[in-house]
């Protein structure tokens, strides 16, 4: 693909998405759970996932607007990650249908979902510990000729493409400040660097939509700012972003739209300001002091982070 594009890539298939227009269009959307969007990229309805007797996810209708950043928030156990798994094909719902760019994803294997342009990251980072950083990156490239058994034996078939992928990978590593770690085993990276690597690797797929499961969990504050910038830049180059997050500052700071889940269902959605003012959301999730100054919130913040970490450890 475009090897000269030093910022990595722009999603090719849909052409340019006007971020401003997409955000403006969202202003007209009513702040109701399941509200239809003017230009949805992802639509799901009647999604139900049961674990034994428990309805982990029971979403009547959900639409994700193309070209903006949508945040998915909610207390622990609200079903955010389960919904993520359902939408990306890593888990199968008991009922319901959902589609990406108009094509149904029902019974579509997770790897095919990724090829269609919807790529996810994981709450617990999944870097390939015993591969080097650059090898992690190269793996992300799609349509590799050298990944076919018989062509693999003949480097002349895949060498050129491999070099192009490496140029793209190096550009992304530069952008995500991992260039110095290029030859290190991914297992030697810190938690935050792993988050960065996972995000960069997902970009190697050149996805139209990227789904980040708690991109900030376990990342130190210094790195958080740069991660925020990275997520924004994903949108600015025309990708759709959906992310799960507990860090309210991040949600307020970068999201264009917020969907709130509690007990498996969507209880509210809207622009960040509207949602944070919604009494139902405050009740369900934020607590009374959600908009007081940061310094006063330290204790709560630490607690929230501890909870997030605990949740991370509980889930596989």
């Amino acid at each position: 693909m475009a090897a000269e594009n030093t910022t990595g890539t722009t999603p090719g298939s849909t052409g340019a998405v006007d971020v401003g227009a997409a955000r403006a269009a969202l202003r007209e959307v009513p702040n109701d759970p399941g509200a239809p969007k003017p230009d949805p990229i992802l639509v799901g309805s009647g999604l139900v996932r049961r674990f034994g007797g428990l309805k982990a996810v029971d979403v009547g209708h959900i639409e994700i607007q193309r070209g903006v950043i949508t945040a998915l928030i909610g207390p622990n156990g609200a079903g955010k990650t389960t919904l993520f798994n359902l939408l990306t094909g890593f888990d199968e719902p008991d009922e319901g249908d959902w589609s990406f760019n108009g094509s149904s994803l029902r019974k579509v294997a997770s790897y095919k979902v990724a090829r269609m342009g919807m790529v996810r990251t994981f709450q617990l980072t999944k870097v390939l510990a015993k591969l080097t950083v650059i090898e992690n990156m190269r793996l992300g490239a799609t349509g590799q000729k050298g990944e076919r058994f018989w062509s693999a034996v003949f480097p002349s078939i895949w060498r050129k493409q491999e070099d192009e992928n490496t140029v793209r990978a190096d550009a992304l590593l530069d952008r995500f400040l991992l260039a110095k770690k290029r030859e290190d085993f991914a297992g030697s990276l810190s938690g935050g660097q792993r988050k960065l690597l996972e995000m960069a690797r997902a970009l190697m797929v050149d996805p139209e939509m990227i789904m980040l499961d708690e991109p900030m969990a376990g990342v130190n504050p210094a790195l958080k700012q740069s991660l925020l910038g990275h997520v924004k830049s994903l949108r600015d180059e025309g990708r759709t972003v959906l992310f799960v997050e507990h860090d309210m500052d991040m949600v307020r700071d970068i999201s264009d739209w917020v969907i709130v889940m509690a007990q498996g269902s969507i209880v509210a959605e809207g622009t960040p300001d509207a949602v944070m003012a919604d009494p139902r959301v405050i009740d369900a999730y934020l607590g009374a002091h959600h908009d007081t100054d940061l310094s006063e919130l330290d204790e709560e913040k630490i607690e929230a982070e501890a909870m997030a970490e605990l949740e991370g450890k509980d889930k596989p």
Binding site: T88, F90, S110, Y111, K112, A114, R115, V119, R120, T121, F122, K126, V127, L128, A129, K130, L131, E135, R138, L139, G140, T142, E147, R201, A202, M204, V205
Partner: peptide, 18 residues
Amino acid sequence: RVLRSIREDEQAVRSLGK
């Protein structure tokens, strides 16, 4: 490389479209 990656974490490999 895909094989070695599967050894490390097959979910990650799946998420990249393999």
